[in-house]
Design a protein around this nucleic acid. Structure first.
Length: 521
RNA sequence: GGCCCCAUCGUCUAGAGGCCUAGGACAUCGGAUUUUCAGUCCGAGUACUGGGGUUCGAAUCCCCAUGGGGUCACCA
């Protein structure tokens, strides 16, 4: 019989979901899904105070947005409840008692200052620090006396110093440590609370976790955890330490501590700038409230789960040498731990952009409209109720924008179609260059305006022909009129095809805008 | 510093002894298409950290060096 795979992700309630953590969670989730196993969410809130629920919001939200559901955990429950570490202390207590009773852990009465001194001396002597087990020398009577006196103590797990401990990591292979170099870790604080390293072991075992898939920085914790598992009589789970994600252009772990440094990295600058441009329009603050290390940044900017998921899966994992675009379903089907790359992977915004672009282009028009609409409403470019005529315009704009649309919020770059003719602003630079500084612009604009009053139908193909004929008969270059017209009608030098723009606006609005430009000379 | 991990184009990666004069993708740079921007198409350059082995043969196996990183709490 083969036991079903059970993996877990155990975030602490930090108030946001880290993109690197999301990638770790994804790998654990993928392994469960690939094998038809179970994925568990467990909350590591041992040292958190009140606001756990609030701090958890963005984390659940990230999972839900990306469609990574959990089979057991908060909200859904499960056979190993509770899924909050803060509510599991009886389990930890029982485990400590067991170790204590079996002599596999001991009460250490040494004061912190004493320990600090030991450590200092070891350092001075250039020797690896290993705690001195003074309390182990105490007689039972002495220990009883100390406890009766209310002398504080911690519980330490007794490392079998005469051994070596080895694990066979599913991505790293055989890794071995010499126990004689390991200090006895504290597993229970003097205030009676428990430490992560211990709680994790108890939880993983009680929840029947078969595969501990986590970031590489936990590799150093693993010997201790393995030893505790063994002392508790648990079977060892399979460990799989996946490499962490590094910051763009760096070899260091991508951490939110360094966001301010990241802001200036050339690779990430664009992402911060985009946040500062878009979020204020949406009433969501700016790059200080949401930045590219948070999953929510991508959601709020209108990235697609498929784009993010594709990018995240390809960071440290590949199907083969050529496949770049994979749906979640593809990845689930092909995901194996052995194909995880051992070296850290740099987070590359450009590459993410390309995955995103691919998946956006796969989307049918209707889905793009549905995706963009909330952004237009949120930016108050369309009013709450979306009537058919509004929707019609949105459809037209998005068709014209075509594959310029990479993320849904890009639609905000085309707000000229959604503002009143009188409210539309002209960008100064192109207005100067294409209209004021172009001596023939006024005349050409007036002539074309004349023709626009009568041409029918007022659609892109007809307008295209009209302008080309106009160019022909007046013997000018097409650029001379096109640029002027574009600025006059949209206020900008870049955007959708000019004839599309005119057709979307329609005759009335186009003429009004041309008049405004003319008046503005 | 101790312990541990890692090492192929700028970046993500393919490569599990001969198929490698090292493949793909992103980015970059050319060129084409074009009313702008984007896109698309075509093309180019760019990498096995170094040194020793093993072998007829090494990017691939072993050793050493170097470099990078992680971790060393009564944090998680």
């Amino acid at each position: 019989m083969t036991t079903p795979v059970r993996t877990r992700f155990a975030p602490s309630p930090t108030g946001y979901m880290h993109i690197g953590g999301m990638r770790t969670a994804l790998f654990a989730w993928l392994w469960a899904r690939h094998t038809g196993g179970v994925f568990i969410l467990r909350i590591d809130d041992t040292d958190q105070e009140r606001n756990v629920e609030a701090a958890l919001g963005p984390i659940f939200r990230a999972f839900e947005w990306l469609g990574l559901n959990w089979d057991e955990g908060p909200k859904v429950g499960g056979p190993y409840e509770p899924y909050y570490q803060s509510q599991r202390t009886p389990l930890y207590q029982a485990a400590v008692d067991k170790l204590l009773a079996e002599g596999k852990a001991f009460k250490d009465f040494d004061a912190p200052e004493v320990i600090a001194e030991d450590r200092k001396q070891a350092e001075a002597a250039k020797k690896t620090y290993v705690n001195i087990r003074r309390s182990l020398e105490l007689s039972d009577a002495e220990k009883k006396q100390l406890e009766a006196d209310g002398k504080p103590f911690v519980v330490r797990f007794l490392i079998p110093r005469d051994q070596k401990i080895a694990i066979d990591d599913a991505v790293r292979g055989h890794v071995e440590w010499d126990c004689s170099l390991m200090p006895d870790p504290v597993i229970m604080r003097s205030n009676g609370s428990f430490l992560y390293n211990f709680a994790t072991v108890v939880d993983d075992s009680q929840m029947q976790i078969t595969h501990v898939i986590r970031a590489e920085e936990h590799l150093a914790n693993t010997p201790v955890q393995a030893l505790i598992h063994m002392a508790l009589g648990n079977p060892l789970p399979v460990f799989a330490h996946i490499p962490f994600i590094t910051a763009p252009g760096s070899t260091k772990k991508l951490s939110k501590r360094d966001v301010e440094k990241l802001r200036n990295s050339p690779q990430l600058k664009k992402m911060f700038d985009r946040a500062d441009e878009v979020f204020p329009q949406l009433g969501l603050g700016d790059s200080k409230t949401l930045n590219p290390v948070m999953v929510e940044y991508y959601e709020r900017l209108g990235y697609l789960p498929s784009g993010i998921l594709n990018a995240l899966s390809r960071l440290g994992w590949s199907l083969d040498g050529t496949t770049e675009f994979l749906s979640l379903e593809d990845v689930i089907q092909n995901f194996t731990l052995e194909r995880i790359v051992k070296a850290p992977a740099g987070f590359d915004p450009e590459k993410l952009q390309s995955y995103q672009q691919y998946w956006m282009n796969q989307l049918p028009l209707g889905d793009k409209v549905t995706g963009c609409l909330p952004f237009l409403t949120q930016a108050r470019l369309v009013s709450g109720e979306v009537d058919d005529s509004t929707r019609e315009i949105v459809v037209k704009v998005i068709s014209a924008v075509a594959d310029r649309l990479r993320v849904f919020s890009d639609i905000l770059d085309y707000k000229e179609f959604f503002v009143d003719d009188e409210a539309m602003t002209f960008d100064e630079k192109p207005f100067q260059q294409r209209l004021r500084d172009a001596p023939e612009a006024v005349g050409l604009l007036k002539s074309v305006r004349e023709q626009l009053t009568t041409v029918t139908p007022f659609d892109a193909a007809t307008l295209d022909k009209l302008v080309h004929d106009f160019v022909e008969t007046s013997g000018i270059k097409i650029g001379q009129i096109v640029h002027a017209l574009r600025v006059a009608v949209t206020g900008k030098s870049v955007g959708v095809g000019l004839f599309d723009a005119l057709a979307i606006l329609g005759r009335e609005r186009s003429l009004r805008r041309i008049d405004r430009a003319l008046e503005r000379f």
